[in-house]
Every structure is written in C-alpha cells, then in structure tokens.
Simulated scan of single mutants.
Amino acid sequence: MAKVRFLAHGRAWEVEAPVGSSVLQASKSVGAPEGDACGGVCACSTCHVYVTKGRELLSEAEEDEEDILDKAFDVRSTSRLGCQARILKDGDIEAEISRESLDAFYNEHPNVKDPRKG
C-alpha cells in the first residue's frame, strides 16, 4: 500500500491506496476534491494534479496523457492526470490538486460548498 496525501484549500486528505490503483481512485476513496468530468478515461484534464512527492512510485506518463496535458491550464514539470498516474510501488505520494481540477470538481458537485467562495 502507498500512502497518498492530497492537498487543497490549505487542507490535506490522506489515504492508503493499493499498488495498481490510480491517483484519481485514491482521491475518490477519501473524498478529496479532484475533478473527473470524463469519468477517468483520459479524455479531459479535470483530474490534473501536481505530484510533489513520490513521482518515482508512479507509472510514467504515456503519449495520450501528455497530449491531454498539452491542453490543460498551468502545466508544470510535476503535472499528471490522476486517472493515468498508476501507483506502482509502496511509499509516500503527495499531490496538490490543481485549480483546474478544483473548478471541475465543484462544477460537477454543485451540492458541495466550494471553500474558495466565502
């Protein structure tokens, strides 16, 4: 199991996730506000995160993921799509949820209060 920590809104969500699962699956299991408008099939960039720790524990980005990230906002060297980043090894992983992903999550879940909107 890998320990995955998600950061957003000055808050953290932590979960133990099995090897083979995706970063998106881990976020959903703990209720972290990561978007997934396409349902996690690499057709959008709403699950965009910045992996700030444990990149070596994840699968490499493939061409499809990189093509989608080319269309994402505020892409950084640590950017990954949560639906495509698979956990390959046990260890500690930390992911900051991007603004794009937060926007998507709150649009997808209008019943959840967006703490960015006072």
Rank of each mutant, 00 (worst) to 15 (best):
G82N: 10
F73C: 05
I68M: 15
L81C: 02
E100P: 00
G91K: 09
R80H: 10
E62T: 12
V41Q: 09
G35L: 10
I68Q: 14
L57V: 02
L58Q: 05
C83S: 03
G39C: 03
V51F: 05
S98C: 11
A95L: 08
T52P: 02
E34Y: 11
C83Q: 06
H48T: 10
R99N: 10
A43Y: 12
A85S: 13
D90Q: 10
S45K: 00
E96F: 04
C44G: 07
I97F: 02
E65I: 00
E56D: 15
A95V: 05
C44H: 03
S98M: 14
E100Q: 15
Q25Y: 04
E66Y: 05
L58K: 04
G39I: 07
C38M: 04
G91D: 09
P33W: 04
G91S: 12
K28A: 13
D70I: 01
P33V: 07
D74N: 13
E56T: 08
R76M: 13
H48P: 03
E63I: 09
L69K: 06
S77F: 13
Y106T: 11
H48L: 05
K89H: 14
V49I: 15
L24Q: 03
S79Q: 02
A85R: 03
D36F: 12
G31C: 06
L58I: 00
E34C: 10
E60A: 04
A43L: 11
E34M: 15
D74S: 06
K28T: 02
I97M: 04
N107D: 15
L88D: 13
S101T: 04
D70R: 01
S45V: 04
A26C: 11
K53H: 09
S98P: 15
T52H: 01
T46F: 01
L81R: 02
S27H: 03
E63A: 15
L58T: 12
K53V: 08
G35Y: 04
D92Y: 05
H48D: 00
A104Q: 06
K89T: 08
S98H: 07
F73S: 03
V30F: 11
H109F: 13
V41I: 12
D92V: 13
F73E: 10
R80F: 02
S59G: 01
E56S: 15
D70E: 11
